[in-house]
Nucleic acid binder design. Structure first.
Lengths: 105, 105
DNA sequence: GCCGTATTCAACCAACTGGTTAATTAACCA
DNA sequence: TGGTTAATTAACCAGTTGGTTGAATACGGC
């Protein structure tokens, strides 16, 4: 699927339904039905989204009777946040205002 | 393309070449050729990636003779970082350890 | 004006996405 | 055991992505 973890993470975050799922899971674990209902998504569609999120390591799944609740794994979010922070810092730490010049040929 | 800005931003961040471009731009503006060379990408491919980044508001472009340098727009990165931070905080502020129970039927 | 460099545009294409419907598996309950 | 609920799997499909090649455009230098 994806070779590098960051691409998998940002890909997972790119879909509004998946961000809504993560936002919901930030308030505690939830099962497929509970995740899909407020979004108007079928269980099948939710199942696919959860697979993407799990592949990125953003959620973990357990078994509880006939339910398979998903829970947020905040560490994966932290990696993405770290990349953003690094890039922003690199920008700030840029040595003085540089000219707009492309490099020489 | 995308209706909501966050989806456009995370979609733009999802491709390793585009993250490499942003990381390069964090060190200062650069033109298409300079961006593509270290990545082994054709100018056409870079042009497409820049269009995605520009559509997400992550870069701005100018004109300098025959070059069209791109520059990072850090504010757009901040919005993505904000969403991650909000979601992580919501998770931390969760009122005590909650039971794993899905809602009643 | 013509040439060379930088960049974009257009068309094409294989691979992937995100949804659907239908069928299957897993677990509880009476 | 049979019936119900929860969830996954498989097959399908339109739309998008990310690259390609080839042609066109923009600008500066001579």
């Amino acid at each position: 699927m994806h070779s590098d973890p960051l691409s998998a993470t940002f890909t997972a975050l790119a879909h509004p339904a998946r961000r809504a799922i993560l936002a919901r899971l930030a308030r505690g674990p939830a099962a497929v039905m509970d995740l899909g209902r407020p979004l108007g998504l079928s269980p099948q569609a939710v199942s696919k989204h959860l697979k993407v999120l799990e592949g990125a390591g953003l959620i973990a799944r357990t078994r509880l009777a006939q339910w398979r609740p998903a829970a947020l794994v905040p560490e994966a979010l932290a990696e993405a946040a770290q990349w953003l922070e690094d890039t922003r810092r690199a920008r700030q730490d840029r040595p003085a205002a540089r000219r707009n010049e492309p490099s020489a040929r």
